[in-house]
Nucleic acid binder design. Structure first.
Length: 423
DNA sequence: TCTGGGGTCCTAGGACCC
DNA sequence: TCTGGGGTCCTAGGACCC
C-alpha cells in the first residue's frame, strides 16, 4: 500500500493573530487574548511568551504587563475568530481536495499522492498563500500519520523563524526525533495517561512506540494503543473529509459576579437556552434532549454544589418557546438556595437534522406556528441586531452577565465596525 | 495544576431480559 | 430467599482535545 502523506496546518497563536490582522501595528509586540470573563490567557504572541506570560495565566495577573512591558490585552471575540477560521479553511481547499477541519485553527490535509512534489516547497506555498489571503500565519507538519504530523507541526512551530514547515516522511533520524519528545507532549496522551506511562518507565514517545502493543492495550486503552501504532507509521486515524453529524451542542458561561437568587439563575438559563436554540436553527438541527447544569466555583473554599438534569422532549425541536419552559422548570428543580453560583449551562444532546424530522414536526399544528415565529425572530435579529428582540425570561438588566473588559471590534461581522482602509 | 467554552470518544456499571 | 450465565441498552463520568 502506498504510504499516506498527511499535513497538519495549524495557525500560530490564532486568536492573537486574528486581532493583529486588524491592528497591524501590534505585529511583533506582546499581545494576549483572554477567555470569557477575562479569566485567563488562552492565546499569546511569541513576544508575550518571551516576557514570561504562561497559557492559562490569570487575566488579573497579566494586567501589570501593560505598563511594564507594553502588553496589549484583548477579551475573546469568537465571531471574529470563526469568520477568519472559515477564510483560512477555504484557502486550504485550493491546495488539497481533502481537508478535515479539526478545530477552529487546525486542519489536516490528505496529501497522499502528492509525493512527487517537493513537500517542503508545497508547504511553503500554502503558508505564503494563507498569509497573503487572510493575514494569518500558519505552521505545517507533514508525516505518514496524524499523530506524527502533530509532532512535525510542533517542530515547525519551534523553528518558526527559519522555516515553518517540517516534513517527517522519509525522515532518516526519526528515532532521534521521537526520543526527544516527552510522552505527555504527544497528541492523545494527557496527564493521567502520561503519569501512568512514566510510572512504568515509558518517558519518551520513542519508548511508547517500542512498547508491546498487547501490554499497552491491556494496561491502558485503545486510544493509547492507537497512538503507539500511529507513532510507528501505521495510519489509524484517516483524514475525514466530511465531518460526521454533530453529536451535541452547548452554551455555558461563568457569571460576571456570584449569583445567589433563583430569579437571576433563571434569567441566565433562559439566555443560554435562547442562544442554544438559535445555534440549533443556524445549523439546521433539532434536539430530543436538553441538559441544564449549574455549579459553584470549585477553586474556592466556599460551600460547593453542582447539579445537572436532563429533560427528554416530547418531540425533536429547535424552537425557543418549546425549550424555554423545560429549561426553566429544570432550573427551579435544581436550584438550592444558600450557594454562590459561578456558572450555568444548557446543552442539547441527541441532535438530528431538521429535514429528517420535518414531517413529525408538522403533525402538531402549534409546532408549525412556533417555527414561523422563530423564523420571524431570527430575521428581525439579523436585520436589527441581536439585542433588538428578546424573551422576557432573559431579563433586562442581566447583572450576572460575563464581563469583558478588553473587547475588540466585530470587524468582519458588523457593518458599523468594518475596518476603514486609508488611501 | 491552578480560573473558558465547546467538543469527542471510551468505559464501567446498572437495568433489564432470556 | 440462595442462585447461573450471557446478552443488550443506556447513562454518568473520565480523559482528552483545541
Amino acid at each position: 500500500m502506498r504510504q499516506k502523506i498527511i499535513a497538519l496546518v495549524d495557525a500560530n497563536a490564532f486568536f492573537v493573530s486574528c486581532e493583529v490582522v486588524f491592528n497591524p501595528a501590534l505585529a511583533g509586540k506582546p499581545v494576549v487574548v483572554l477567555s470569557g470573563n477575562d479569566a485567563c490567557v488562552i492565546s499569546r504572541s511569541p513576544e508575550a511568551k518571551a516576557i514570561g506570560i504562561k497559557m492559562q495565566a490569570m487575566g488579573s495577573a497579566v494586567k501589570r504587563y501593560i505598563h511594564s512591558h507594553g502588553l496589549t490585552i484583548f477579551s475573546t471575540n469568537p465571531p471574529l475568530y470563526r469568520d477568519l477560521s472559515r477564510r483560512v479553511m477555504q484557502t486550504l481547499s485550493h491546495f488539497c481536495p481533502s481537508v478535515e477541519v479539526y478545530s477552529v485553527d487546525e486542519a489536516f490535509l490528505d496529501l497522499t499522492g502528492f509525493g512527487e512534489r517537493n513537500l517542503l516547497d508545497y508547504g511553503q506555498q500554502i503558508r505564503h498563500t494563507v498569509k497573503q489571503w487572510t493575514g494569518i500565519p500558519v505552521s505545517i507538519g507533514i508525516a505518514p500519520t496524524k499523530t506524527l504530523a502533530k509532532i512535525a507541526n510542533h517542530m515547525a512551530k519551534a523553528r518558526l523563524s527559519t522555516e515553518g514547515v517540517v516534513d517527517l516522511t522519509n525522515e532518516p533520524r526519526l528515532d532521534a526525533v521521537l526520543s526527544a519528545v516527552e510522552v505527555g507532549d504527544v497528541w492523545g496522551i494527557g496527564r493521567q495517561t502520561a503519569d501512568k506511562l512514566q510510572s512504568r518507565g515509558i518517558r519518551t514517545v520513542l519508548q511508547l512506540r517500542q512498547a508491546d502493543p498487547d501490554w499497552i492495550r491491556r494496561k491502558f486503552n485503545v486510544i493509547t494503543l492507537r497512538t503507539l501504532l500511529e507513532l510507528g507509521g501505521m495510519s489509524c486515524l484517516p483524514v475525514e473529509k466530511s465531518a460526521d453529524a454533530q453529536k451535541g451542542m452547548m452554551v455555558t458561561r461563568c457569571f460576571g459576579r456570584p449569583v445567589t437568587a433563583l430569579a437571576e439563575m433563571q434569567e441566565a438559563v433562559a439566555t443560554h437556552t435562547t442562544r442554544l436554540a438559535e445555534k440549533l436553527r443556524q445549523e439546521g438541527l433539532a434536539t430530543k434532549m436538553i441538559l441544564v447544569s449549574m455549579r459553584t466555583n470549585r477553586f474556592t473554599d466556599i460551600p460547593q454544589y453542582e447539579a445537572s438534569r436532563s429533560v427528554p422532549l416530547a418531540a425533536p425541536t429547535n424552537s425557543t418557546d418549546r425549550l424555554l419552559p423545560q429549561a426553566l422548570q429544570a432550573t427551579a428543580a435544581l436550584f438550592r438556595p444558600g450557594f454562590q453560583y459561578y456558572k450555568a449551562g444548557v446543552s442539547a444532546s441527541e441532535l438530528i437534522e431538521v429535514n429528517q424530522v420535518q414531517i413529525g414536526l408538522f403533525d402538531d399544528p402549534t409546532s408549525a406556528k412556533s417555527q414561523r415565529l422563530m423564523q420571524a425572530v431570527d430575521s428581525i435579529k439579523q436585520k436589527l441586531g441581536t439585542g433588538s428582540i428578546k424573551y422576557a425570561a432573559v431579563g433586562l438588566k442581566q447583572e450576572w452577565r460575563t464581563r469583558l473588559s478588553y473587547p475588540s471590534k466585530r470587524y468582519t461581522t458588523c457593518w458599523e465596525e468594518l475596518p476603514i482602509a486609508k488611501a
